[in-house]
Amino acid sequence: MNTTSILDIKNLHAGVAGKAILKGISLTIGPGEVHAVMGPNGSGKSTLAAVLAGREGYDITAGEARYLGQDLLELDPEERARAGLFLAFQYPVEIPGVNSTYFLKSALNEQRKHRGLPELDAIEFLKLVKEKIKLLDLNEDLLKRAVNVGFSGGEKKRNEIFQMAVLDPTLAVLDETDSGLDIDALRVVSEGVNKLKAPGKAQLVITHYQRLLNHIVPDYVHVLMEGRIVRSGGKELALELEERGYDWISRELQLAA
């Protein structure tokens, strides 16, 4: 096992209610790396993100996932977050009645507490928020509202990356962050993500379309089909997929079989 990796997935099998979705995923992500997982609808992309973040309702039937050397799948979702794992949701949920600022400050301080750092007071937190919100070109007024309530689709996605900027994770998993974004919002979100790139940190970008990868340039691209990574390569693999579609790989796989 590579102890210097951030995420190390080996032969991971997972499913829902007896139906297998992930059928043996292996993937290693090292510090400073950006990996993209691409695949058609139904290939298991969102299941991979959900299993990594610890969403309930999935059965892990085989394999393992180690994060910074520890067994990730043993941890509760909040323990994963405190250890520095962040999931940017494909569909961020609205939470009426929970103020955005209060929520994010509680979350950040919870994480700091567990890392032995002093909690931020209201003034320090506000300073951090003002600094990070600029990255995402987000209206500060949104933070006075309830979490994601009354946000447009684009605002919800930008808010995810804003939270990522504030929480400063070691591993960020971006689940179809590009879906539902127009080209301008896509650019803003991508720039935000790029600015958060750092030598000790890593990003796993999950997407259906190549267009996001014009902005967030990956070091590695993996193609996920029917619950397996069927091909891995450099960023040029994404361009090839864009040009030739997913069918091309399906056909090659069938020929090989």
Partner: peptide, 19 residues
């Protein structure tokens, strides 16, 4: 969603009930 940001289950529940 709340837990995925680091809040304990109990805090998450209380936050939602309070809301």
């Amino acid at each position: 969603y709340l837990r995925s940001r680091g809040l304990p289950l109990e805090t998450a529940r209380r936050m939602l009930i309070h809301a």
